[in-house]
Design a protein around this nucleic acid. Sequence first.
DNA 1: TTGTAAGCGTTATCAC
DNA 2: GTGATAACGCTTACAA
Lengths: 345, 345
Amino acid sequence: MTVTIKDVAVRAGVSPSTVSRVISNHPRISEKTKRQVRLAMEELGYHPNILARSLVKKTADAIGVLIPSTTEEFFMNPFFPEVLRGISDVARREGFDLLLSTSDSNKEDVKSLKRMIHGKRVDGVLLLSSRMQDPLLDVLQDHPFPATLLGRPQSGFEIPWVNNDNVDACYRATRHLIDLGHRRIAFLCGDEALLVTQDRMQGYQNALKEAGIPIDRKWIYASSFMEQGGYLGMMRLLATSERPTAVVASDDVLAFGAMRAAGELGYQIPDDIAIVGFNNVKLAEMSNPSLTSMDVHIFELGKTVAELLIEQMRTHKLKEKSVLVPSDLVIRHSCGALNKITHQN
Amino acid sequence: MTVTIKDVAVRAGVSPSTVSRVISNHPRISEKTKRQVRLAMEELGYHPNILARSLVKKTADAIGVLIPSTTEEFFMNPFFPEVLRGISDVARREGFDLLLSTSDSNKEDVKSLKRMIHGKRVDGVLLLSSRMQDPLLDVLQDHPFPATLLGRPQSGFEIPWVNNDNVDACYRATRHLIDLGHRRIAFLCGDEALLVTQDRMQGYQNALKEAGIPIDRKWIYASSFMEQGGYLGMMRLLATSERPTAVVASDDVLAFGAMRAAGELGYQIPDDIAIVGFNNVKLAEMSNPSLTSMDVHIFELGKTVAELLIEQMRTHKLKEKSVLVPSDLVIRHSCGALNKITHQN
DNA sequence: TTGTAAGCGTTATCAC
DNA sequence: GTGATAACGCTTACAA
C-alpha cells in the first residue's frame, strides 16, 4: 500500500540504508546511485514517513503552540492572528511545522503541555501568555524542555522570554494623558492574574504617582480582554459621581468597547473623554475617531519568540538571552493631542 | 533518560504488553495488575511516546490545516481566527491536535500537502480555500486521503465540502441595494481565481440582470482580500464619470477599505453611497456607520468542516455529504435601510 | 561507496 | 489474564 524505503531500495537495486543516505544527502554516495534512487523514488511516488524518522532521530521538526486556556477570548483578539503570523513566518522559514494546542481549562492546559513534551511530537513549545502561579511553568521546571514564553515569567522561573517592557510602556501611555492635562484618569484592564495586566497597571500607577495624582481603586476596572469588558467597564466609570476625563485601556479591544459605551451615552471622544489603547491593532487606525495606541509590535513579538525557541532547540543551551521588544505610542485622534496641530487620518 | 513502557514494565513486575494493555484499557486485565502498573507509571512519570504509537497504529490523532498560500492576506482577515476557532473547538472535543501548515507559494502549498499526507503525521486535512485549477485537489485526486474543503470544489472533483451558497447570498446582498432604489451598483472583490469570488460575482450579476440593470465591467473591481484593496477600488470607482451610488463588497475587509476611501473623499455613507459587506465579522457592528453585512456564520463553517472531516476519517467512507451553511443579511446603517425606521446600532 | 543489523517505543498476534 | 515476539518505517554504527 504505502511505499516505503524498502520498496525504493528494491526498485533501485540498492539497500535501504543507501536510500536513506540519498534522502539525507549523505556526502559519500556516488552520483550514479543517487540518480537511480531518485528515479525510483519518483516512479514509486515515495515520501518519507516522518513519524518513523522522528522516532529514531528523536526530533519532530515541529514546535508546539500553547494557546491560553481562555481560548475563545484569545482567538477573538486581533492580537492572536498577528502573533501567529510572526510565529508561522519563522517556523516555515526554518522548516518547522506548527502544532496548535487549545484547551478549555487550566487543568487541560497542563495535560496538553505534558502530552506535547512527553509525546515527542514537538521539539519545543511556545507559551503564549503567563499568569501568576502558572502551573505550566511548574511543569517545565520539572521536565526541562525547550520552551519560550511570550510575556514575563514570575520571578524564580528560568525560561527564555520575549516581552515588552509593559511597566514602562503603560507609564508612557498614561503620561501622554497627563501631559495633555488630564488628572482624572481611569484604567481598564483584563484578567488581573495575568502578568501583562499587573505590569501595565503598575506603569499606570507609576505615572499617576509621579504626577502627584492619588490612585483611586474606583477608577480601575478589570474584566476580560474582550470588547464587552471594555464596554461594561466604561459604562461603570461614566456612572461614577466624579467621572474620569481620560482612560487608559490595557488592550485595544477594551478601548473599542469603551468607545462604544461612551458613544452610546453621548460623550464625545476626545472632547469629553480621552482614550489611549494598547497593541495598536490594525483596527485602531480605522476606528472613529482613530485610536491612539501603544504599538507593541505584535508581529515582531511572534517572530522573536519563535526565533528564540528555535535557537534554544538547536543549541540545546538554555541561553538566558531573553528579548525586550520596544514599544512606541502611535498618536491619533482619541486623545485630542493631534487636534491642536492638524486633522489628519 | 526518557522513561519507556519497558521501564514501567520492569518496575511493575510485568511485561511491556501488559503495560500497553493497561494504557489502552484492555478489558481482560486484573484490577490488581492495573493498580500496580498505574502506580509504576505514576512513580516513574511515564508518558507514552505518541510517535511510536502512531507508527504502529497508523493513526496520528491530528488533523492538518492547510492555510492558503496567500498566508499573510489570510491571517490578517478576521475570517481566519474565527474559522480556526470553530475548527479547534471540535478538534479538541474529539481529541485531535491541529497541525498548521502555511506556505509561501502555490508550489510550496503542494509540497506541504504531500508531506502531510505521506508523512503520516495527520489523519486528514482541511483545505481552507479553493481556486480554479487548484493543484491541491489534483494531489488529493491522485492520492486518496481524508480531506474536506472549506469552499466549493471545481466540478469534477470528489471531495466533501462545506460552503455557503455564495451565488444566492450575493444575489440577496445585491438585491437589498436594488430594493432600496439603487441602480448604479458596483462590486468589489478579491482574487478572481478564487471560486468564492466567482460565485459572489455571479450572484451580483444575477441580481442586476433580474432587475434589468446592464452589467458594466467598469464597476467591477478585483484586488485582494485586504483593506487596501477595498480602499483603492473605491477610489477608482468614485473617480469614474458616472459614479455608483452603492457598492457590494465581497468581504467586510474590502468594505472597510471602501468606507475609508469614501470618508476621505468626503462622501457620506449611506447618503452618498451605500455599502454592503460580506462575512459579518465582529467589526462590522462596531464600525461607523455600522456595516450591513451578509453573515456567513464563520464559526459554524469552521465547526462543520472539521466535523465532516472527522466523520470521514472515522468511517473511511467518502460519504458525499457536503454541507451548505445558510447565510443571512444583517441590516445595519451602511445602506440606509434602517434610517427610515429608527436609529439603532 | 555500500550493505548488514540493531534499535527507536509502541501495539498486535499468538501462544500459554 | 499475561508474556514472547514480530512488526511499524526509518536511521546509524559497524563491517566490508
